[in-house]
Each structure stands twice: as C-alpha cells, then as structure tokens.
C-alpha cells in the first residue's frame, strides 16, 4: 500500500505529507500534521466540527480526502488568530460567552470566518442558514449568532 505524497498549503505555510488514498483530510490534519483543533464529531458531514476552509470555501474535512489537497490552500482553526491578536469572531465568541463546552467552537469559528470573508453585513437569517451545518448542543445558538453579528459589525468598523 504505497502512500500518496501531497504538497499543500496549511494556514499559509507549505506542508508535505504522505497519506493513504482513503485517509480523510480530517485524519491528515489531526494525525499527520498534529493540528487537533479541528474536531471529529460525526465523520458524515452532519455536525461541522471538522470545518476547514479550502480555497475560500468552507468544507467538512471529514468529507474530503487528504490526497485532494494537493496544491490547495487549507485554513484551519489554528490559523485564525494572528500571533498577537484574535480574529474578531474569536474575540466576540469570548465576549458573548458563545461557547460552553467549546468542542463545536473551532468549526463554528471557521465557518463564521468564511461567511465574514465574503459578507460583512449578514442578516440574522443569513447567519443562521450559513451556520446550519454546525451543530452546537450547549448554547441554543443564541449567543453564537449574536457573536457573529457583532464580529461583522466590528469588521465593518461599525
């Protein structure tokens, strides 16, 4: 079983890894690259805990093969904050207490970042449907939606 050699960019840094054909991007991130901030909640694309951004689109890394990442641009939760400051959506999650257990949080943050990258003035409904693929069992979503709204406002400079 020969492995596949992949060269890709993860959080702006070129990385190389070997993976098996059936190995998912999620497994590659967690087991080969040690990036355990991306979480596995279901492995069927139903919970969004494994969300990453690939070439600008938010996707479930459990539904992508590691081999597919060749030449792509992958962003994970570990790349969201700059060394000296958090991304506005991270900051607002903390201010709003938009997390309880924190397990779904990386997926929500990555998905929210992908939304805010293309729309800094989303309506509540747009936020709710954009984040419908991220399950949270703790918060009832209220504070998460408010945090994203305020992050958008912060990014607009409002």
């Amino acid at each position: 079983m020969s492995k596949i050699h992949v060269t890709t960019s993860v959080n702006g840094e070129e990385v190389e890894y070997l993976c098996e054909a059936q190995q998912t991007m999620l497994d590659v991130l967690r087991d080969e690259l040690g990036l355990t901030g991306t979480k596995e909640g279901c492995s069927t694309g139903d919970c969004g805990a494994c969300s990453v951004i690939v070439d600008g689109d938010v996707v479930c890394s459990c539904l992508m093969l590691g081999a597919e990442a060749e030449g792509r641009n992958v962003e994970t939760i570990e790349g969201l904050a700059a060394p000296d400051h958090l991304h506005p959506v991270q900051k607002q999650f903390l201010e709003h207490a938009a997390l309880q257990c924190g397990f779904c949080t990386p997926g929500f943050l990555v998905a929210a970042k992908a939304l805010l990258d293309r729309n800094q003035n989303p309506t509540e409904t747009e936020i709710r449907y954009w984040l419908a693929g991220n399950l949270c069992r703790c918060t009832g979503y209220d504070k998460i939606v408010r945090a994203v709204q305020d992050a958008a406002a912060e990014m607009r400079g409002a």
Partner: peptide
Amino acid sequence: IGSQQIQGR
C-alpha cells in the same frame, strides 16, 4: 443539499 460545508463540495 446539506449545509454550507456540503455546498462547498
């Protein structure tokens, strides 16, 4: 079909 994540693929 599915979530925004699914839509990306």
